[in-house]
Design a binder for these strands. Sequence first.
DNA 1: ACACATATATAGATCTTCGATATATATTTA
DNA 2: TAAATATATATCGAAGATCTATATATGTGT
Lengths: 111, 111
Amino acid sequence: MGIDKSLLSGSTAMLILRLLEDGDMYGYQMIEELAKRSDNTFALKAGTLYPLLHGLEQQGMVSSYYDSAGGAKMRKYYSLTKKGRGLLAEKKAEWQLFSSAVNKVLKGVSI
Amino acid sequence: MGIDKSLLSGSTAMLILRLLEDGDMYGYQMIEELAKRSDNTFALKAGTLYPLLHGLEQQGMVSSYYDSAGGAKMRKYYSLTKKGRGLLAEKKAEWQLFSSAVNKVLKGVSI
DNA sequence: ACACATATATAGATCTTCGATATATATTTA
DNA sequence: TAAATATATATCGAAGATCTATATATGTGT
């Protein structure tokens, strides 16, 4: 990966939901797409992604369906639900708050 | 707090080291200073901070000494070591890489 | 004297991610 | 045709980080 994995904590779900905002995707595709969009900074592991997707589905944030998409092998596609869009909006706001707070501390102020 | 605690994962040590860059501090002071500098976004718990400080000291990133600082009660001050400054520089670079990657994904690209 | 804020510390619970492993199909290479 | 590799989904146990709860002790204000 190249990045301290613990930094990812909590933001993985947001990133996955953000991918689905642009269209339905299957798991393996998310791993590749996330690596591509982050210039290979993120190398999400399958063992992380699938349990996360199952959890999001149970909470009603995403829905899934099987499709062979033109004769190839069967793939499980995930789709963002309305509830999921709401969660994504929350997570985005939270990320903005968090990252700007970190930058404030890094920038420093007079004691 | 107001922020998903898991977002803090991995960045807490960086924030603590950054505080010490501006001068020696004792634990309780760090909690207050971090809240202040982040506009109350970060509310670090004592149960998180002290084990973290002990770990950093064991790794030689910080050193400590007791001082009563003018008659008041005894406080345990922490000081950033040379090694700690090196770690801070690493963590800062990592944070820049991570946050810019997240922002890339959030911004989105054509599929 | 009593309550409260300050100050440090540890133990156990929870959450998230990872590495390892398992299974199965499609594609490429020898 | 057979073997190797890439694609694709899934689960389990280990590891790391933070939280809550709890414990202890000192200084300050009423």
